[in-house]
Amino acid sequence: MTGGDGPAGGDHRLHLLRQMLRIRRFEERTVELYSATAIRGFLHLDIGEEACAVGVTGALAPDDAVVATYREHGHALARGMTMRAVMAELEGKVEGVSRGRGGSMHLFDAATRFYGGYAIVGGGLPVAVGLALADKLQGLPRVTACFFGDGAVAEGEFHESMNLAALWDLPVLFVCENNLYAMGTALARAQSEPDLAVKAAAYRVPSWAVDGMDVLAVEEAATRAVEAVRRGGPHFLELRTYRFRAHSMYDPDRYREKSEIEAWKERDPIPALEAVLVADGALDDDTLARIEAEVAAEVDDAVAFAEAGTLEPVSDVGSHVTATPQADGGLP
């Protein structure tokens, strides 16, 4: 298992809980920091959808690869990037995972084979196909997990990628986080066939729809799918989930009813898992308080780390455009 801080109390489910809480509390703090302008640009939150990132990454091996979208704080943390380095990235500091170059939408980490947050909808899918192609050509038993939203299913890149991966039998796990909306566009208003698993099946890609609010269900489905992918050929998971907050930081939420949001909040994956654990006697108030305290301390530490971080010298802004700097680079 990857991710932050190992299993708590020996029960793997407590580890999943801790991971989801880390993401939730981290992002709640980013809202505050954004409001105070310490974070800027676009900030897409995973709040409500944590079970997807945590459940799927939980099923991956350390040398598998991850490709994600701009809504990827959760995936990055669950995959093992430190909270410090992610927070520093959001604050534009050189200690950030992408040296402050990428910000919230572009987290990258070679150590965990996290090939990035892509902010062009659908843009990550072909890249994931290529990562898998390389593994296949090199005979490496690795899996590439590619996350994307329901909105991406309308892009040509989705269809082209599904077809290629299936045609060439490539080890890609396509993970569609179907939160029912692409910005303000409800799935039903964007898809002639709103059952996304059916689309994948049309490419002869085995596909399952899974309750994305249940981390245990997600992990179980992902584990099965990853095993199958490792044996050969792409699989498709549709995780049915919901974002509790706006598309990016704030939006007027004109496109959905408050009552719909409230109804989904009833299915919040964190209290849901807590309830299961409490019922099983695997979690008590003290343990939960301790986990919360530890997570809060980790968040505080990450914020302090980010705030103490340094700004990349302006004179370095032209580095990393190409391996050898081009004569045309440099400042205006």
Partner: peptide, 25 residues
């Protein structure tokens, strides 16, 4: 000519400011 530095745009504000053509430039 005063143009943007030839880099994909960085996120950090101080870098973005430096990359973009400003009145100073």
């Amino acid at each position: 000519r005063v143009c943007s530095a030839e880099v994909p745009m960085p996120y950090a504000k101080h870098l973005e400011d430096a990359v973009l053509p400003g009145a100073d430039d």
